[in-house]
Design a binder for these strands. Structure first.
Lengths: 183, 183, 183, 183
DNA sequence: TATGAATGAGAGTTCATTCAT
DNA sequence: GATGAATGAACTCTCATTCAT
């Protein structure tokens, strides 16, 4: 990926989170990235395309940094790695996380964007249900619930970062998470 | 509240959900409500004010229709009423629900808007924890988690409305919800 | 027709003839007409619509000022009135005439614009052929030819305005025109 | 002439006729010709220069294919060859013909472009008038009229190509043309 | 000669907001 | 209170042209 394209995406992410989609003119994104206005449209079809690409970038980033640990571990251990990984990523990538939420709830998100859900997580849940380690409720509902509980925890620690230092607190949070899901 | 103001809010809700904030000019809202463009600005200071008022309207509506049943019932029963009430309201007010999500994740939402969280729910959780009916994890995390689990269930039944007819399915969903929270 | 709309059309006509369609920004038209840029788009959907309306305006103007004299005159006399009327109008409305030519040969002209041909002239030719005063060649070809001969004469006198003073010259020109058409 | 230059001119002709001057970016011309955007500007100084060159190309083409037959034939016969030749060329080169009209009526045409009128035709008319085969009206007016009648006939047969098959029809059309001009 | 990413001035158009009626 | 024509700053996007390779 060209250097200019990368800088444009990073500038867009920062500014969109700061001022919203409408509050951020493409000219400002270009200037912040140190390129000409025309260059932005050389790399992206439109502002909407830029927004979509920033979203893709954030989702890829998140997936990359919360890869589920190797399959030899127990389901519980893998969920714990995921739980802590997601929170850690959210804390050090709050802009990307905010962007994901903003985009997914905006008019820019099309139904197809469902596809961007983390496939590793989907597989883990399936495995957990098959092996009776996770509750046998409707799989789609379970997936939605897992995602939203991960989100809640991440939001929580984002808002109270001091509690993130407390290992007991995190242990207790994960315990709540696990108890909710386990068979 | 004047009739025109009401129609403006309802038109705004519908159009904002359909086309987003930026995708909906005030002129379109006015036309859809059957009033002149200038009239909108007699009732609202600005477009941002209109958006804020629509949000308030939606939150009020939701609170109104998910009043928690009287305090003599058990915590579990009241949570069940809330769980089913929220889902029912979400299914028949999907526009308002989408608007709430869209607004809360947009750049329009200020931190103060936390206050608009349902106070009845906050009180119920507090009571549940005090009387050891609900898990004793961090109260703020529990609130976030309850809200997000309610959202997950609502989103789920919005997407698969046919399952909403299945009483067993709903029972199982609530059971999952309750098991996650109970002491 | 509103005053601002009229001024916009007149400014557009003048500037489009002077600098062409691409050479004339809508902002310049608005400024020349003494209105805001937005006002132009309040009266016209787009630049293309403005161009179309200017064309309509010019065609109407030409038809208005070359109304064929009353039907009691001979076909020859009516054609003479038309011939001289068209030339006179062309000489004192050269901008409008240039605009008509420019538009009709541009990519803006759609096939439907054929309809804007002068209906009085069409009727006169038909009558002339029916009464065997005009040549009995293919009516469509005759119409095209009459139009183009009128154009030629107008272009000629526009380029050599001094000859327009010479009554003999005009007589001779009409004689050529008539001889070409008569039965 | 280099192969790329030739392809650029042909692409430009096709696209300018289809979408107009403003509707055709140079990048599109380059792509259609299968060359890089920069290459266009090695062969032409500017877009205006390209347009001018396409015009020159079309006028040359037309002159080439409507060479007036050898001087031993009568004026009438030579005019007939010209008349039929022009129509035939126009029918099989409608893009070039449309381009000529479009250019000559556009803001790109400078007065000097008069010079591009067919010199053979000018000479033929002069000879015809000298030898009293053609009407003795103002030579400039006669030239304009001949050109415009040739255009009318060409436009006519372009619009009704089926009539072009009818030899009687063509004979009658030429007869009309000749009667208009003859002494 | 050829390339095509980069440029940036400038275009058409939008739209929140005002205000005379 | 209601109207809707008018405003003009600001926006997204275009495209002729350049230049390092």
């Amino acid at each position: 990926m060209s250097d200019k394209r990368k800088r444009l995406i990073e500038s867009a992410l920062e500014l969109f989170v700061l001022n919203g989609f409408q509050g951020t003119p493409t000219s400002q994104v270009a200037k912040h990235a140190g390129v000409a206005t025309g260059t932005l449209f050389h790399h992206f079809d439109s502002k909407a395309d830029l927004i979509q690409c920033v979203y893709q970038h954030c989702v890829d980033l998140r997936a990359e940094h919360s890869t589920i640990s190797d399959g030899s571990l127990t389901v519980k251990q893998r969920l714990k790695d995921l739980f802590l990984g997601r929170i850690a990523w959210g804390l050090s990538n709050s802009a990307a996380l905010t962007f994901i939420h903003r985009f997914e709830n905006s008019a820019f998100a099309s139904p197809d964007d469902e596809l961007l859900k983390d496939p590793n997580l989907v597989a883990l849940i399936q495995e957990g249900q098959s092996s009776r380690k996770l509750r046998l409720i409707d799989a789609a509902l379970l997936q939605l619930s897992v995602e939203s509980l991960l989100d809640s925890a991440t939001r929580f620690y984002s808002r109270y970062p001091e509690k993130y230092q407390d290992e007991m607190h995190k242990y207790s949070s994960f315990n709540f998470f696990w108890t909710a899901l386990k068979y």
